[in-house]
C-alpha cells in the first residue's frame, strides 16, 4: 500500500508544486480557525455572503492573471480597465438611458483595452511590467477624465441583481466565478492552449521552435484579462449601485498576490488554477477577518505582504526550479 502511494507520487505531472499547495491549504485552515477565535461573527451567513460579494471582482481578475503570470508576464492595468469600464457603463447609461447598449460598450471597451496590452506586449515586445503600468495610467486617467471625479448613479434597479442577487441561496457573482474557474482550470489542464502557456513560461524560445505563435498567445491572454475586467466592472457597479473612478484600485495587487500565493511561479511555467482559488480564499478571508477583528486595513496589507514573502521563501517557489538545479549540476 505504502509503496503504491510513493509510485503515484512520482508520476504526477511535474508542473504542479504540491509542497506549495499543501502549505497554502494548511495556512487556509489555520486562518479559518484563527478567524473564528478572534472574531465573533466570521462564520455568520451575513458575513460570509458580504465577504464573497466584496472579493469576487478580484477573484475574477485573478483567473486570467494566472494565465498571464504563467507566461512570465504581468497585467498591472486591470485596475485601470475596471475603473474605465465602470465609468463608461454608468456614463453611457446616463446619456442614452439604454443599459443594454451600455453593457455592450463596456465589454467591448474591456476587450479593446486588453487587446492594446496584448499587441504591445506580444507583438511590439515591450516588457509587460512597463507596458501595463503605462496602460494602467492611461485607462485610469480616462476614467477620471470622463467622470470628472464624480460618483455616477442612475442605473436601472434590475441591473443591481448582478451584484446583490441570489441564485439557489448563493450570491450570483459566486456562480459566475465558479463557472469561470472551472473553465479556466479546464483550459489549463486539458487544452493545447493551456500547454502552450506553460511552454512559453518555461522557455519562450523552445515554444518558437515548436511552432507556437507566442505573440498570439499573449494577445489572447490580455484580451481575456480585459474582458474579465469588464465583467468585474459590471459586478462592481451593480454591487455598490454607482460608479466611481477609483473603482478597482488595488484589485491588481490583490489578484497578483492571490495568484502567487496559490503557487504560480512568478517566472512562469509552474502553477494551477486550483492553487489560485486557494490563494483567493486566503487573501479574501484575511482581508475580511482582520477587518472584523478591527485590524486596520494598512496592517492587513502589511500582513499580506509578509505572508507572500514567507510562503515563497518556505516553499522555494522562486521559479527556475528544475532548470536551476540542472545548471548547478553542470
Amino acid at each position: 500500500m505504502k509503496k503504491k502511494r510513493v509510485q503515484e507520487k512520482t508520476i504526477r505531472p511535474p508542473e504542479i508544486k504540491y509542497t506549495h499547495i499543501s502549505i497554502i491549504f494548511g495556512l487556509l485552515i489555520f486562518t479559518c480557525i484563527l478567524m473564528s477565535v478572534i472574531t465573533d461573527n466570521f462564520f455568520s451567513t451575513k458575513n460570509l455572503t458580504g465577504m464573497t460579494r466584496n472579493f469576487m471582482e478580484t477573484a475574477l481578475l485573478a483567473l486570467p492573471m494566472t494565465f498571464i503570470i504563467l507566461t512570465n508576464s504581468i497585467d498591472l492595468s486591470v485596475s485601470g480597465t475596471v475603473a474605465m469600464c465602470a465609468i463608461f457603463l454608468a456614463k453611457i447609461n446616463l446619456v442614452t438611458g439604454n443599459i443594454v447598449l451600455a453593457i455592450a460598450i463596456t465589454v467591448i471597451t474591456g476587450i479593446l483595452a486588453g487587446a492594446l496590452n496584448g499587441v504591445v506586449v506580444g507583438y511590439i515586445k515591450i516588457p509587460s511590467f512597463i507596458a501595463t503600468l503605462a496602460t494602467m495610467f492611461m485607462y485610469g486617467g480616462i476614467a477620471q477624465g470622463v467622470s470628472q471625479a464624480e460618483t455616477l448613479t442612475g442605473l436601472p434597479k434590475t441591473f443591481y441583481i448582478l451584484g446583490s442577487g441570489y441564485f439557489l441561496g448563493l450570491p450570483i457573482q459566486l456562480w459566475i466565478f465558479a463557472v469561470a474557474a472551472i473553465l479556466f482550470s479546464f483550459v489549463l489542464r486539458r487544452t493545447e492552449y493551456g500547454r502552450n502557456l506553460r511552454v512559453i513560461g518555461f522557455n519562450p524560445e523552445s515554444a518558437v521552435y515548436a511552432g507556437i505563435n507566442v505573440a498570439k498567445v499573449h494577445l489572447i491572454n490580455y484580451v481575456v484579462s480585459g474582458a474579465m475586467a469588464a465583467l468585474a466592472a459590471l459586478i462592481f457597479v451593480s454591487r455598490i449601485s454607482a460608479a466611481k473612478s477609483n473603482a478597482g484600485v488595488g484589485y491588481e495587487t490583490d489578484a497578483i498576490i492571490a495568484v502567487v500565493l496559490g503557487g504560480t511561479s512568478i517566472s512562469g511555467g509552474y502553477g494551477t488554477v486550483e492553487g489560485t482559488i486557494l490563494g483567493i480564499l486566503l487573501v479574501g478571508i484575511l482581508r475580511n477577518g482582520l477587518t472584523l477583528a478591527r485590524v486596520s486595513s494598512e496592517i492587513t496589507t502589511i500582513i499580506l505582504g509578509m505572508l507572500l514573502l514567507l510562503t515563497i521563501i518556505i516553499s522555494g517557489n522562486t521559479g527556475g526550479g528544475v532548470i536551476k538545479k540542472h545548471k548547478k549540476e553542470k
Partner: peptide, 19 residues
C-alpha cells in the same frame, strides 16, 4: 536552449510540436 523544454515532462515535450 530550444530543442526541449527542460522543466517539462517527457510526454509533454514529445507531443509539443504535433499537439
Amino acid at each position: 536552449r530550444n530543442g526541449v523544454t527542460l522543466p517539462m515532462s517527457i510526454k509533454d515535450n514529445i507531443t509539443l510540436a504535433m499537439l
